[in-house]
Simulated assay, not measured.
Amino acid sequence: MIRTTCEYCDAELRRAGLGRPQRFCSGRCRVAAHRKKRAGEAVPAEIRGQKRWIRHGADKTPLRADTGRAASSTDPRTWTDHGTAARSPHGAGLGFVLNGDGIVCVDLDHCLTADGQLAPWAAAILNACPPTYTEVSPSGTGLHLWGHGHVVRGRRIRREDGAHIEVYGTGRYIALGRRYGQAPAELADISEVITSLTT
């Protein structure tokens, strides 16, 4: 079947059906899709080995890797292994589902400038955190701190400057980005950081 929309942004392909099969509407989308497919390569084996992977659309809608249809962060039947999700042609990137087993994610929203400078408030959180897998969010403006901890209910903390800090441990999926700097490919216990943010 001839593809008629861009694999990355779902925009209509102008030259669909003419000559060599077209997958992307622009070089920009091709590069972005390539970067997102590679996003999971530096992910710690502890996460990569779980069968809790999905895809996500350009609008962050969770998608099944096998069909491209809607996935659910609470229905394991819609998840798959990392390899299958990484090879899937559906959506714009990888997502990992948090299911309450102790793997958690702290999302520091809008903490990176366009030139990669980290906001002081985010640097303070990062410095208080033991070395753990950290990635730049797909938007390029935030950080995800991955680790071990106990989070019963997700929290969203709004800062006075408009930035957000989100803490999740279950019932959510996280869209993967790319490794931040030289962050280790392992998860640390970040319970103390979580406690400091949520109390």
Rank of each mutant, 00 (worst) to 15 (best):
R3A: 09
R3M: 13
R3C: 03
T4N: 06
T5Y: 04
T5R: 09
T5E: 14
C6L: 05
Y8A: 11
Y8C: 10
C9D: 06
C9Y: 05
D10R: 02
D10C: 10
A11D: 09
E12Y: 02
E12A: 15
L13H: 04
L13E: 07
L13I: 14
R14I: 02
R15A: 13
R15F: 08
R15K: 11
G19T: 13
G19C: 06
R20E: 10
P21I: 10
Q22C: 07
Q22M: 01
R23K: 11
F24H: 15
G27L: 03
G27N: 14
G27C: 07
V31R: 13
V31G: 01
K36S: 15
G40F: 09
E41C: 01
A42M: 04
P44Y: 10
P44F: 06
A45I: 14
A45F: 11
Q50V: 12
K51Y: 05
K51R: 15
K51A: 13
R52W: 00
W53V: 12
I54F: 02
I54N: 06
R55I: 09
H56F: 14
H56R: 00
G57R: 08
G57C: 06
G57M: 01
A58Y: 05
D59G: 08
D59K: 07
K60S: 11
A65N: 09
A65E: 05
A65F: 05
G68A: 02
R69K: 13
A71L: 04
T74N: 10
T74L: 07
D75V: 12
D75G: 10
W79V: 13
W79Y: 09
T80N: 04
D81W: 02
D81V: 06
G83F: 08
T84F: 01
A85Y: 00
A85W: 13
A86L: 07
P89A: 02
G91I: 11
A92P: 05
A92I: 02
G93W: 03
L94W: 03
L94M: 15
F96C: 09
F96E: 00
V97K: 08
V97M: 00
N99K: 09
N99L: 01
N99G: 05
G100S: 07
G100C: 03
D101F: 03
G102L: 01
